[in-house]
Design a binder for these strands. Sequence first.
RNA 1: UGACCCGUGGUGUAACGGUAGCACUGCAGAUUUUGGUUCUGCCUGUCAAGGUUCGAAUCCUUGCGGGUCAACCA
Length: 560
Amino acid sequence: MENGSESGRSKNFLESIIENDIHNGKNEGRVHTRFPPEPNGYLHIGHAKSICLNFGLADTYNGKCNLRFDDTNPTKEEQEYVNSIMEDVRWLGFDWEERLFYASDYFDQLYEWAEKLILDGKAYVDDQTPDVISEQRGVPTRPGKESPFRNRSADENIDLFRRMKAGEFPNGTRVLRAKIDMASPNMHMRDPVMYRIMHAHHHRTGDTWCIYPMYDYAHGQSDYLEGITHSICTLEFEIHRPLYDWFLDNLIDTEYRPRQHEFARLNLSYTVMSKRKLLELVTEKYVNGWDDPRMPTISGLRRRGYTPESIRSFADRVGVAKRENVIDVGLLEFSVREHLNKVAPRIFAVLDPLKVIITNYPEGQSEELMLENNPEDPQGGSRKVPFSREIYIEQDDFMEDPPNKFFRLGPGREVRLKGAYIIKCEDFKKDENGRMKELYCTYDPETKSGSGVNRKVKGTLHWVSVNDCLDAEVRIYDRLFMNEDPDDVDEGEDFKSNLNPDSLKVVTGKVEPSVATASVGDTFQFQRLGYFCVDKDSKDSRLVFNRTVTLKDTWAKMKQ
RNA sequence: UGACCCGUGGUGUAACGGUAGCACUGCAGAUUUUGGUUCUGCCUGUCAAGGUUCGAAUCCUUGCGGGUCAACCA
């Protein structure tokens, strides 16, 4: 029992709390969590951390986890978002079973409870404008002032509240407030607003309501109604907890009680995470939509080629605690390499082609070589790759005047073509701009792969046959921001000035013919280059690949 | 000049009064028909000062640093 989970890692503070609660028989030892997104945007990697946490905790302690849409503000929320959120949660591998809920499911009960608070003298209707109420609230270091409407009679309050509900008053003219303490050092306890008037169409309740509950009034009671035991949210809600408890204390008297716990949200280097900034990137067309592969949204990561497994292992690795943190985006990249290394079939693709003519290979001849699909997967099988007199290799794999540490081709040097033969560079030709145009090599027929002749050469290159390869569009993605902290900018600038102008480069690559039948979402390792997946923009006549992430490249590092 | 929360290697995260560990990164080496993978080794840490204790990252005090809170947003 040293560890909190099956992975053998140490347990986090929430697991300690839960184990303690179970041990004490709190809420009959039940564990019931929930993931409560507001349907006003797309989910991102930060939400993934919360999803993995909430569903993971339920799983670890034989509990349940609900999906609940926090839809108390009809002016911001849309069905499109609830659909995408459900898709993303499912894709990540979690199942809320029959427990799909909406805060709007509880509007009737919430309203009844509001009347109860009014009758108990614990809530009142305030006729003042938002500006005046805000003014009276004071500042954290100075107490606020009480509203002149604070001591209306219960009868008057009920009458007014019912008329608010009936639609007699325009937006912004009245609110229902909890009567708590205008001098509290906690601003959230200074008679917080419970209901506001909004003549707006709600995506689920339509035009039934024209008053809507605020988050603070809705959330705890929604938890209560669903039997939630551990209501997990991010740190900025810590100061709301006394209010969360106040409503419950004044509304219910059961022994069962949900308890709010806060953890530190995920931050990633080279990434922005706020919904506002992500929205800005989309609406101002810095990226091509919410699922642009450079976006940290779940849909963007999915399109980029990230797998649910890799995101879950990432979430597990970043841990859960209460201190502010910035996770190195390299850890996310590590997580996806780790998974793709195990499952992605290897293929040959040349992104920056340099033609090689094998002068002693008979013209017109070709052969089919057997290549292992994945050295990490004994069950992965093999495939045939055509080889012929003219092939492409990468421009980067040849240097006219190479240093000692360069293990690839150069004049007079030998390399192995992976799965084929050892070749030796005899000559080369440049074009009029000085760019390398063609290499003339000879091959050693004795060195065919699998023949048992194992002459050692320093380098091994990937290649494709000129006459057999396919053209494919390859979208080479890099980090969206150049600065570790995108918000670190000069006076008068904002995060967009840190955008990486080279975050997307499109090239036409040459890929081996075996991928002709690949379908959208399939992931491959382009040998020696990185992991790539088939994008939804692919046509039968032309595949489109997205680069998920490069391979670790110690040579590239040495060059720096 | 308020309240609340938080300070452990470069980045995260453990250690619950008893040897500061793990992961990522970085560096060095071995293996390798991917300069990938795998394996081995190494570097770097308890914010500070007092106190309690045989013993403090852990408990107490003070200081310092960071964060949150003043929507009819969530």
